[in-house]
Amino acid sequence: MEFLGEVVAWFANPETWSGRNGIPIRLWEHVSLAAAALAVGTLIALPLGMLIGHTGRGALAVVSIANIGRAIPSLGWFGIVFVPALNLGLGLGFWPSVIALVPLAVPPIVTNTYTGLREVDRDLVEAARGMGMREWQILRRLEIPVALPVILAGIRTSAVQVVATATLAAVIAGGTLGQLILVGINIGDEVQVFGAALLVALLAIVTELSFAAIQRAATSPGLRDRGSAAELSV
């Protein structure tokens, strides 16, 4: 109980909220880094997933390569970008951190986009083609809207992972809430370590809930399960 009191006191302390190591700046770094990594990851993963999902070709290769992102531990990616970033004179911080997070952001989006598109009923695709839709129209007007809930679920998974893992960017000077944890460990301040970790957890939950809300709002009412209503006949 005493520890919890100290955590509350830490949050209540104005110093915690001000300066270079204050929560607002670190939180902003955290969110902007995660957003950038998710954006870059989505830009890579969506077209790739759509290509293999629509054509059904090259799926094994692409999904395998994407999964390497999962096979290498997250911290490993920060190590991998560390050396070239220094050697190429890019410096450390934001962009190397983005690059380290992208391999983590890509696999869920590629996999879900691919799966979502493949799960679209082949009869629907044939009906669309038979009505005179071009291939990209089939993708844009049928496959993507029908697969949207699955695609968004992939982006959601990706976002939560990236938000949680962005903490590690502190090790290559990327700042973020991880910086507060790192400093806390260095000076032996368990309260700060715990408080910052709590913030990361909260941010991950907020991310999860926001994306779930987006997913619901973006799903056509026709794709929501209406239970037995669909079975009733008039």
Binding site: D123, E126, A127, A128, G130, M131, V146
Partner: peptide, 27 residues
């Protein structure tokens, strides 16, 4: 050619994410 030929399949193949009006308006 296909836009000039009506096409009806066994499973009907209505687009689930579109309303009935929108489905009818595809072509």
């Amino acid at each position: 050619l296909r836009r000039r030929i009506g096409y009806v399949i066994q499973q009907v193949g209505l687009f689930p994410h579109l309303t009935i009006g929108e489905n009818t308006a595809v072509v």
